[in-house]
Write a protein that binds this DNA or RNA. Structure first.
Lengths: 143, 143
DNA sequence: ATTATTTACATAGCACGCTATTTAATTGGA
DNA sequence: TCCAATTAAATAGCGTGCTATGTAAATAAT
């Protein structure tokens, strides 16, 4: 008995993700950023001017989730939307100057949170940890 | 570069937790349950008649989060609240017959989701995985 | 060419996490 | 004893995830 609860992989995954999100939120809040916004910015810092559908696929969230996140980011002056030339249904997402200026500081904040989370794990343990998470993710994506 | 994104522990943790939650939600939805409700039920199946504060501590969520989850569970006929004898501020949370009847089926559903997630991992890998998650959780709790 | 399907995106509504605030009861100190 | 501090719980407001549904544009099929 008590095979679930604080022992199950699912509970631990949820708990760990909440702590990651809370820690990141605390670190990037001074920049006016929220965690999901940061994930979108990572994609756009890497390559700007993409479609909503592209961002949705990159972050593996539902289309409606991305639509709402982008609405908040537009409200907060992090992105602008320009009509696509090729497809009049689509609007390409572009970073604002403000969003571009946040890159280094925000990435440093995320790096600090990851460093805290993984403190005391050597390189082999970190590799094992991420490899195991990837396998578990793969299992659930195929299931 | 690209040290974050699909490679960071934080991203993987979030992704994994979302897949766990979605899988569990799909399995317990036919019983009229949602994931956070299931976590509360696990606590109450283990010992019934506890305070909101006790459940809050057991699941490591904020008091307001638990208050809202319990409100939905009362609405859905999963719990009843009876006044505490010792403390007139507190109301003890009790399972309904309906909630008691769901124990075996809901635990089986959660077990199936965990089995899917951990498929292909042997016992040593599973132990390593949960131990690493616990260490990472500990790091962030102390940080 | 017209119709049907698919695709891109928006919106509504809900679950669940958070912080901040309020109310009522209890406890502790002067 | 009375007042201050703490504690139990509720509520408001928001971010982020989901499903379901609607609308307009593009593509495919007849």
């Amino acid at each position: 008995m008590d095979q679930f609860q604080h022992n199950s992989a699912g509970y631990l995954a949820n708990h760990m993700a909440r702590l990651f999100a809370a820690g990141l939120a605390r670190r990037i809040q001074p920049m006016g950023l929220a965690p999901a916004q940061f994930m979108v910015l990572l994609e756009l810092w890497h390559s700007d001017g993409r479609t909503q559908a592209d961002l949705t696929a990159a972050l593996d969230v539902e289309q409606a989730t991305m639509a709402n996140t982008l609405k908040r980011m537009e409200r907060d002056g992090l992105i602008r939307r320009l009509p696509s030339e090729e497809d009049r249904r689509a609007r390409l997402i572009h970073l604002t100057d403000r969003a571009r200026a946040l890159e280094a500081e925000a990435k440093a904040a995320a790096g600090a949170q990851n460093a805290l989370a993984l403190a005391g794990l050597d390189e082999a343990e970190r590799a094992t940890f991420t490899a195991l998470m990837r396998r578990v993710i793969g299992n659930m994506q195929r299931g």
